Amino acid sequence: MRRVALHGGDVTHGDGLELAGRTLWVAHNTSQTISRWRLTPDGGAAHLEHQVTDPSLQIPTTLVRDRGRLLVVRSQFDKGGPMGPGTPEAPFTVAEVRGL
């Protein structure tokens, strides 16, 4: 294990990670953000390329790339989970995030 120098942002509250080649996507749960990073060839640094923040992500916990799509699990942890009172809305859903 080694440290990676981050440029242009951070991965605070990073929960789900997806790595394909030198591109890394991060689901930031409490900030409702998905970010895309580009790693250097040696993997020693990463540069923030793009990020999307949207409350409709409903506390994203994990993500996956599938056939060019970025699919994100909406946890609803703010609805009766560890981050708030209430009751989650069934069924739980997966969001497709475009542009990342």
Results as ranks from 00 to 15, higher is better:
residue 43 G to P: 01
residue 40 T to N: 07
residue 61 T to H: 06
residue 14 G to M: 05
residue 42 D to L: 08
residue 27 A to V: 02
residue 68 G to M: 10
residue 60 P to M: 00
residue 73 V to R: 01
residue 74 R to W: 01
residue 68 G to T: 12
residue 97 V to Q: 04
residue 14 G to T: 06
residue 21 G to L: 01
residue 62 T to I: 04
residue 38 R to M: 08
residue 97 V to L: 05
residue 61 T to Q: 08
residue 54 D to A: 12
residue 22 R to T: 15
residue 36 R to S: 13
residue 79 K to Q: 14
residue 48 L to Y: 08
residue 37 W to H: 11
residue 41 P to R: 06
residue 6 L to Y: 04
residue 66 D to C: 06
residue 4 V to I: 15
residue 51 Q to T: 00
residue 98 R to C: 02
residue 60 P to R: 03
residue 24 L to P: 00
residue 5 A to D: 14
residue 93 T to L: 15
residue 72 V to S: 03
residue 13 H to E: 15
residue 9 G to K: 08
residue 18 E to W: 12
residue 84 G to E: 05
residue 83 M to V: 09
residue 91 P to L: 07
residue 6 L to K: 03
residue 25 W to G: 03
residue 89 E to N: 10
residue 96 E to D: 10
residue 18 E to C: 09
residue 38 R to Q: 14
residue 66 D to H: 13
residue 18 E to I: 00
residue 24 L to E: 04
residue 14 G to S: 11
residue 51 Q to K: 07
residue 10 D to Q: 08
residue 47 H to S: 13
residue 4 V to W: 04
residue 40 T to Q: 04
residue 41 P to A: 12
residue 5 A to F: 07
residue 55 P to A: 14
residue 81 G to H: 05
residue 47 H to F: 14
residue 42 D to N: 13
residue 94 V to P: 00
residue 13 H to V: 13
residue 32 Q to C: 05
residue 100 L to Q: 13
residue 63 L to I: 10
residue 43 G to R: 02
residue 87 T to I: 02
residue 93 T to C: 05
residue 1 M to D: 13
residue 58 Q to I: 01
residue 7 H to T: 13
residue 57 L to D: 02
